[in-house]
Design a protein around this nucleic acid. Structure first.
Length: 434
RNA sequence: GGAGGAGUGGCCGAGCGGUCGAAGGCGGCGGAUUUGAAAUCCGUUGUAGGGGCGACUCUACCGGGGGUUCGAAUCCCUCCUCCUCCGCCA
């Protein structure tokens, strides 16, 4: 990075990030780091050589030995001072680096907000209704399958309780999605923990910059003190991307095994800090939701193609459920922190007369792999290289349920179950107010 | 939660505070032998960072962190992880 500072600056500017002073600081730190290392290593070498000589001295009590020892003590102090500076520089450098977002891929269009995203595909047609469309809250509450009031009683705002056919629909969607991805797309199924260490959150890029967006586990004072001292904090995962991608942190995979692909379900937890007043109605934006995630680890040469494949896999779920949607490519300014190229799938919500994100598929290049040291070995002897990572929702289950309630609503308030899902719903074809 | 034991290179497993990046074995790779294979023999075999156009070279790493020392895989402290037993628990 320090060698291509100008390019880095230009790429980050496309994201709307333009703290030139910070990047200059980065450059000078990188330089100082190199100097300090060279210096300390030279000192260490002197000490090693001298120590070796000391070891050979027969008489350890001699004046000579004592004098030499005193001299070396000074050298030892110098080394310690150098090491201290090295740690300082490395710390500051890392601090800057970890807070820098990924560089947008050249394919990623310019733009600073979602208004600059580019529609790349539209699938299906907007369903037409010869009655006044209701939103998912009206439909779901009317059917007795969504309960927001009791959710508020239990957990506060931004939660939902699914009842009866609603709960079953959530479960059916989860099963259906996992089955499609494992049997038709070749993903290996994983069921990971939903509580992870901060090192995992750091690896995928949620930390250190976005701590406020996640829920952190608190216990007693002792727990807090230990978490503070050793970084053994635990977080509720905001997405299965975190535990699943970190599966291969600190590992070296065999090139022949690539791509390595996983799909997994987890509950996802988000604090939604900063979204006050936004999407307060219904289950579009809640603190806890379910999601099936797709994760791929691949050779750097195949990342671009892999993103297309991954996106198709996510889209196939919407297609099988016969839900009208569109795919948009995100512009540089609207992408997530770790992404270099992303597509969002947006499902049609008739009541809002708009498309809403239901999946985000991203290619991270080696950004995440570098943070978590996830590598592969090219052929048998080569040096380990960083992998490329990708992930996408396949899909967000709650929002899929919302889309079904809205797109499949009937004039009588019932909802037809997409045929693909019926085997998972015990053959039920229609959810009615039973 | 209580009591005990252990963490060394891809794996197993040695290692008086100096000559240890670390014996030995297994595995892997290359080669010899063989029609081919097995067996045998020989050689080789970690990661990261710095310097050099390069051949190459230096430094660090023996669970993590800290300390003692001229010098730590070896001594001390602390944390983590794993194993065994007891208790509790879905």
């Amino acid at each position: 990075m320090s060698e291509n500072l100008a390019d880095v600056k230009a790429a980050l500017t496309r994201r709307g990030f333009d703290d030139a002073a910070l990047l200059d600081r980065l450059g000078s730190l990188a330089e100082e780091r190199r100097e300090v290392i060279t210096n300390v290593e030279a000192l260490r070498r002197r000490r090693n050589d001298a120590s070796e000589a000391m070891a050979k001295v027969a008489d350890k009590k001699s004046k000579e030995f004592q004098a030499k020892r005193d001299e070396l003590r000074v050298l030892g102090d110098e080394i310690k001072a150098g090491e201290f500076r090295q740690t300082e520089v490395a710390g500051e450098l890392e601090d800057i680096l970890l807070n820098l977002p990924n560089l947008p891929h050249p394919d990623t269009p310019d733009g600073l907000s979602e208004n600059d995203n580019v529609e790349v595909r539209v699938w299906g047609k907007k369903p037409s209704f010869d009655f006044e469309v209701r939103d998912h809250v009206e439909v779901g509450v009317g059917l007795g399958i969504l309960d927001f009031e009791r959710a508020a009683k239990l957990s506060g705002s931004r939660f939902v309780v699914l009842m009866g056919a609603g709960a079953r629909l959530e479960r059916a969607l989860m099963q259906f999605m996992l089955d499609v991805h494992t049997t038709e797309h070749g993903y290996q199924e994983v069921w990971p923990p939903v509580l992870v260490k901060d090192s995992a959150m750091l690896g995928t890029g949620q930390l250190p910059k976005f701590a406020k967006d996640s829920f952190r586990i608190a216990k007693d004072e002792q727990w807090e003190a230990q978490a503070e001292a050793q970084g053994h904090d635990l977080y509720l995962v905001p997405t299965a991307e975190v535990p699943i991608t970190n599966l291969h942190a600190e590992e070296i995979l065999a090139e022949a095994d690539l791509p390595v692909t996983y799909t997994g379900y987890t509950a996802c937890f988000r604090s939604e800090a900063g979204s006050y007043g936004k999407d307060t109605r219904g289950m579009i934006r809640v603190h806890q939701f379910d999601k099936v995630e797709l994760v791929r680890f691949c050779h750097p040469d195949h990342g671009e193609r892999e993103l297309e494949t991954l996106t198709e896999h996510a889209e196939s779920i919407l297609q099988k459920l016969d839900l009208h949607y569109r795919a948009v490519q995100l512009c540089a300014g609207d992408m997530g922190f770790a992404a270099q190229k992303s597509y969002d799938l947006e499902v049609w919500l008739p009541a809002q007369d708009t498309y809403r994100e239901i999946s985000s598929c991203s290619w991270f290049g080696d950004f995440q792999a570098r943070r978590m040291r996830a590598r592969f070995r090219p052929d048998k002897k080569g040096k380990p290289r960083l992998l490329h990572t990708l992930n996408g929702s396949g899909l967000a289950i709650g929002r899929t349920l919302v889309a079904i309630l809205e797109q499949n609503q009937q004039v009588d308030g019932s909802v037809s179950v997409p045929p693909a899902l019926r085997p998972y719903m015990g053959g039920v074809e229609r959810i009615t107010d039973a």
